[in-house]
């Protein structure tokens, strides 16, 4: 299953990933991204990749 990776150092709290996939990404009180899941089913890959690409600082990736 595709695995999600978040670079919490790079994250700037812009929040675009959450708008793209609020069931996968959230933000903590300090404004840093939180992964709600570590893996997503293959069938969800396109949607989650799209949400990852909406990150302005490329802090998110979907890996195999």
């Amino acid at each position: 299953m595709p695995r999600l990776v978040a670079d919490v150092e790079a994250c700037q709290g812009y929040g675009n990933c959450i708008t793209g996939a609020s069931d996968v990404f959230d933000i903590d009180d300090d404004g840093v991204v939180v992964l709600l899941k570590e893996k997503v089913p293959e069938s969800d890959r396109a949607r989650v990749e799209e949400a990852a690409r909406s990150c302005p600082v490329s802090a998110l990736s979907v890996e195999d």
């Binding site: 709290g13 929040g15 959450i18 708008t19 609020s22 933000i27 903590d28 009180d29 404004g31």
Partner: peptide, 9 residues
Amino acid sequence: PKALVLCRR
């Protein structure tokens, strides 16, 4: 950012 995400939602 947390408040922003909430308002956006």
